[in-house]
Computed example of a mutant assay.
Amino acid sequence: MAKLAFLGLGVMGYPMAGYLAKAGHEVTVYNRTAAKAEAWAGEHGGASAPTPAEAARGAEFVMACVGNDDDLRAVCLGEEGAFAGMDEGTVFVDHTTVSAAVTRELYDAAEAGGIAFVDAPVSGGQAGAENGQLAVMCGGDQAAYDRAEPVIAAYAKACRRLGESGAGQMTKMVNQICIAGLVQGLSEGLHFAQKAGLDGAAVVDVISGGAAGSWQMANRYETMLADQFEHGFAVDWMRKDLAICLKTADEVGASLPVTALVDQFYKDVQKLGGGRWDTSSLIKRLNAAG
């Protein structure tokens, strides 16, 4: 069992930190809203700290799951940042979905201080975090990954190192690119079924066992047909991720026409007031169009 810090207690981080405590680790948490950190500590028996540096002091591993590039820099750097409180030889594990550029920037900053840095974005959404069933894609030095993987296992159903620093974030981009097109296709299929007067649930029952089947179909078709979109990863966050994908695609020379189109469809969902709806709300845009 290890002494750990966890930075960021949003819908993902709160249960992830809970699984670390449940596994027997000694966990100190930090959250920008201190009351949430105190509530977590009261619930799970850990401790809370007023700054990332204080949370990280004496920890063998520091895990983070915050919002974006700037949030991650804020919890890592500066006098109150985690790196200032970490000892040489400790490991920082970043579960935030951010750009590969900021990952490499922070990898270099950590290395200069004798700290190992593993980028480890996750897939599985809020349900995956709450059930301890996340897929974790990692980049960084092999030795650092080997040390971190048994700790990450507390909330992961799958965890793999894909390469050097930034490889985890690049893999998460692939994940989001695949999801974007798939959810749009599912939305169009269900929308078509409704307009054609078919029983959407019956249609899915037939086609889900064939080539059209997917995790999204199995886990989201019922709520999509019921016009319910409070069950997963928010549109606002998806657009943040897709912006990273599209920017990186320009940098590496990749063509992402469908991803770019679906990003604009999500923009339409935001205009409908659906920034906090889950990503399956693409069907809402189609239904609103008539």
Rank of each mutant, 00 (worst) to 15 (best):
G232E: 11
C76P: 08
K3E: 04
G168A: 04
A109H: 02
D141W: 10
F265V: 13
R104E: 10
V151S: 12
D236T: 11
V98K: 13
R220Y: 06
M63T: 06
K271D: 14
E88R: 09
G58L: 05
A153T: 09
A288Q: 09
G13W: 01
E43K: 13
E88N: 05
E54M: 05
C159P: 12
Q142H: 03
S280R: 06
K271A: 15
V204H: 05
M1N: 03
E43Y: 02
M1T: 03
F192Q: 02
A156Q: 12
G125T: 01
G18K: 12
W215P: 11
Q184N: 05
Q264V: 13
T223R: 04
A35L: 06
A37Q: 11
V62E: 01
P121Q: 01
D263I: 15
A34N: 06
G163V: 05
D205N: 12
A109S: 02
A53L: 13
Q142C: 00
M170P: 15
G58F: 04
D87G: 11
E38A: 00
V102D: 04
R285T: 07
G213V: 10
N68E: 02
K22S: 00
L242P: 14
M12Y: 00
R285P: 03
T171E: 07
G290I: 11
I179P: 04
A129R: 09
C138P: 08
A193S: 11
M217V: 05
E105A: 00
A196R: 13
A243W: 15
V11E: 01
Q264S: 10
L256M: 15
A135H: 10
C159V: 15
P150S: 10
W215E: 07
K240A: 02
W40L: 02
I152P: 11
G89T: 10
V235D: 00
A64Q: 01
D94T: 13
F83H: 04
